[in-house]
Design a protein around this nucleic acid. Sequence first.
RNA 1: GCGCCCGUAGCUCAAUUGGUUAGAGCACGCGACUGUGACUCGCGAGGUUACGGGUUCGAUGCCCGCCGGGCGCCCCA
Length: 425
Amino acid sequence: MKFQTVRGTKDILPAEIYKWQHIERTVRSVCERFGYTEIRTPVFEETALFARGIGETTDVVGKEMFSFNPSMEGDAMDSITLRPEMTASVMRAYLQHSLQTLAPLTKVYYFAEMFRKERPQAGRQRQFWQFGCECLGSTAAVSDAEVIAVMSLIYRELGITSATMKLNSLGNLETRKTYRVALQDYFRPHFEKLDAVSKERFDKNPLRILDSKNQSLAEIISDAPRLVDFLDDDSKKHFETLQSHLTNLGIAFELDFKLVRGLDYYSRTAFELVSTDLGAQDALGGGGRYDGLSTALGSESEVPAIGFASGVERLLMVMEKQNLFDHLKPQPPVLFIAALGEAAVKVAMTEAYKLRAKGVRCEMDLLGRSLKSQMREANRSGATYTVVLGDDELEKGIVQLRKMSDATQTQIALNEIIDKIQVGK
RNA sequence: GCGCCCGUAGCUCAAUUGGUUAGAGCACGCGACUGUGACUCGCGAGGUUACGGGUUCGAUGCCCGCCGGGCGCCCCA
């Protein structure tokens, strides 16, 4: 085999597409019930948008972007990048088209493919799909609650029950500066006990030490000062209001003071949905408030916003494991027409066409196969009925309508097929 | 990007310490049944053993490289 998909990419084949369609249908349905409208943005953007929007120091920007220079003469496309996430693009679109002038609040959702140049592993690909929504324009905790509710209802309607929603508040930029210093003060006496990765994080991003998967550090970490205790009054109030909204909605969550999302422009709310049915990449989705993003992108006014993103491949893995696709097999055809001979094929084609135009799913053989093979095909297709059409039937205008489940056959006129099968449906 | 493991028909797996025409089940095609599916029984097609080198009289099995996959790390969806 000469060609194959490039590393970290996958085909989604016809046999499994119904799973994807089910997820996509559910996502769209829930988002739209909450009043979110789909947004589609270009699959690539100026590299600088992501560099500024996600943060120069993050891994995503630092080493995972698919960037290239198309070098088109007379074009100012110095460097463009396949989107590694959607939030920056959504904010760009919001600012570019001045969406705030249309309404004080903008609520959008997306279902789109993302690209990151990472080493593939279970639940991690170089091209992968995400869905999510963004609510731009409100600082109110009720908007945080709504976004989490959207996410939560999507998973609920898909049948996911075992996932855990982790919740934290990061406060504002000041909060995190103070907390950062407090954390360094706390870890400094333990510095020699830290592992190499944590030592590196000590200066770069001490909040990430809390994230360490190293069990031997668990004790030190659990005694570390908590970010919640450093929250300013407004953030504290915001956090409490959010929690009471979630409680009212019956959305279960776990406070997790170790949950820190690395990007600078994040503020206050941070959340993540994790599942034990995944491997090391155990996050189904996550999100947070990003009030600082608009100004990071050069906007003069601050656009408060919150959103979430979810990984479709990971969701699929969990649903597969929990057998949540079992009742969703694609619809089989109602009728299969087995035609014998050129004249019969012609009639079969036109009859099938009429039925299809009327909304009936109907199939016929395209390979010139024997009757036996066509019957096998009819059986395989799961058709409810099969009609056999040969010279005799053509002559008399009468066909045998075979009910596949019990092999009973009834004689009916060719032009009465539609009445029969719709009654029998 | 780093470490460890893996790669044989479409799929799941065989193939005595390196030994001659690389097998089986499932799936697929055809037939038994000259115009009637499922069950059964035959027959058939399907492989450059991922790819490229090396060692050897001889390599699916050993060595190197490369491509791809899995697990973990980093990070995230």
